[in-house]
Design a protein around this nucleic acid. Structure first.
Lengths: 342, 342
DNA sequence: TTGAAAGCGATACCAA
DNA sequence: TTGGTATCGCTTTCAA
């Protein structure tokens, strides 16, 4: 009378056990291969596993609280910015190689989206969380504290992380670029970037840059922050706006290389020669730079490695190994050919 | 750093209920706001929810089988190819706006990784799966059949999808480009792409292109498939190899615009003028094209929309609404300025 | 080497 | 408007 043909052809462990003529427990032991059964039993069970296409339900042991889950929540601002795509790729690669899966959350740079994503993902009992950025909403912080699971905050270097931290000193990278450009003799600068919340890493780069410029006696004449993704076209368009504003700038600092390339293209389009007429500096040392005749003056950051290091920190912690709380992934200046020489 | 959290301060519904002096069921009703309780009771319960920082465990109702989960597995080949990053962004945006979350799987273009990811993700009872590509390993197919949940296969247009399908006719898009270029008078072609499994969409574009070329009396003189990501540098390097091989080509067809731009840069580097000396055609009408003085001759594909449409199909199905099994997202030829004129 | 029973957290169902 | 009980799939604990 009982057609086990219910709409979901769920094959559970007890069905397998029954078919194999053993108890649930025995079947469970065989599945986990932890010993305590005869070879003959193993064969009987495995035969049914294959025949029925049994796939364990990992939610059950998780509920029972014996195990910790194998997925890690990862929040990323957006994927239109190639830099974040690379970080995510690094995270997922490394997580995957250790048997963990990525649950993605795109926050679009807003703390509200991050908060609601955190709430949802937490309700699934993830093993841990990897979050981009150091600032979180009040409620998100409460949730995170309460959850008490491993957290890696990436991107920014953070002297007082929630838990673990992998990132780089954005302010310093901006400062170094500013100092470099001032030393080359530039005095009047422009900036083109995108604007999200004010507390993001790009703003901190700009702060560092700005400080270096004023420390060196130069001026940040004008800055344009567009409401857009930090990609090619906004760089192009932002540069158009900057130059059209009448600001006299000798060199433009961009949020990243994609935007810098967009700006580069705009400058050449209107007949400016680079670096003769105007200097261009980016950030990230992104892939496009490798094919340009004039390599972009930029800051090299190992994005993929940053993601991998974050995932490694998470995995180590989950395995109960010792983990360095904070890791500086570093950066280095790439002189390039888009600014004048000394 | 204190790990007073290791014991997981599990606040369960019964703890909340007890603290509020009501039964689990009453507390449950309040949490779900489905009515059937007094205002006073609601207040008592919510006060404890706040005080204890209670967060529901979504795994429990899932286990009981009453609900279907709110996460969708999404497999993507890689994120180094901007095109896929956009598709993923479209998927996650749309999924998120309907309360679903993305569980990411990067397959690195291998069926084996896809298979093992499918197995893992299935064991968490996802609501559905969105898979890139039409080909799956034998075992993956078995798993998918057995799971019996909604599946959207994206990227390729597929006349016999496992379930639902959102994509475009890659062969046709290659054919259209080939025909266009032949009509412009080109006879000898080269191709530069990346090689993964042979059954992927890019190969189908190449097949279509190749057919159009021979139909039009032209020749595909040489093709280079690199083991790399379809990004700028491989396009640059592949073009170098192609031209160094001594093949006489008048026009090069690339796997996508990123590679095409890399090739463009190589050609100009060695003094070739485009399109005077050699023609360049890409695919995808990717963001970089918007800032180039000479827009790339390409095929426009609405990547973000493709991702969104896939997520919409999934959500509709999950809501029990009628869904068109197969959706052609379309493409259109972008003439550009990197090939000769008629 | 095997099995029976309890329990994880939440909800459906039925009772009061 | 409330609460008790069974249940989902699996593992732990304790017995045989």
């Amino acid at each position: 009378m009982d057609n086990n043909v219910s709409k979901t052809n769920k094959v559970s462990l007890s069905i397998v056990a029954e078919a194999a003529g053993v108890s649930k427990m025995t079947a469970s032991r065989v599945m986990r291969g932890e010993g305590g059964y005869s070879e003959k039993t193993r064969e009987k069970v495995m035969a049914q596993v294959d025949a029925l296409g049994y796939l364990p339900n990992r939610l059950a042991p998780l509920l029972a609280g014996d195990t910790t889950s194998t997925f890690v929540g990862v929040s990323i601002p957006d994927l239109g910015n190639e830099v974040f795509a690379q970080v995510l790729e690094g995270i997922d690669q490394k997580l995957g190689s250790h048997g963990y899966q990525t649950v993605l959350g795109l926050t679009q740079h807003t703390l509200e989206k991050e908060e609601s994503w955190i709430e949802t993902v937490l309700s699934w009992q993830p093993a841990g969380l990897i979050l981009t950025g150091r600032s979180h909403s009040r409620r998100a912080l409460d949730l995170l504290m309460n959850a008490g699971l491993p957290i890696v905050e990436i991107w920014d270097l953070n002297s007082s992380p929630l838990d673990m931290n992998v990132g780089l000193a954005h302010f310093d990278s901006g400062y170094e670029m500013g100092r470099y450009l001032v030393r080359l003799g530039y005095k009047a600068f422009g900036y083109v970037g995108t604007s999200h919340d004010t507390a993001n890493a790009a703003s901190r780069r700009l702060e560092g840059f700005s400080k270096a410029v004023s420390d060196g006696g130069g001026t940040l004449v004008r800055q344009f922050c567009l409401h857009d993704t930090a990609n090619f076209y906004p760089g192009f368009y932002g540069t158009e706006q900057l130059l059209a504003s009448g600001a006299k700038v000798e060199c433009i600092y961009f949020q990243n290389d994609s935007m810098a390339f967009g700006g580069f293209q705009y400058c050449e389009r209107i007949g400016l020669s680079i670096p003769r007429d105007i200097g261009i500096a980016g950030w990230g040392d992104m892939p496009i730079s490798s094919v340009l005749r004039k390599r972009l003056t930029s800051i090299h950051v190992p994005h993929l490695k940053l993601g991998q290091a974050a995932a490694e920190a998470m995995v180590s912690r989950l395995k109960g190994e010792a983990v360095i709380d904070s890791r500086d992934i570093g950066f280095s200046l790439v002189p390039g050919q888009t600014v004048r020489e000394l």
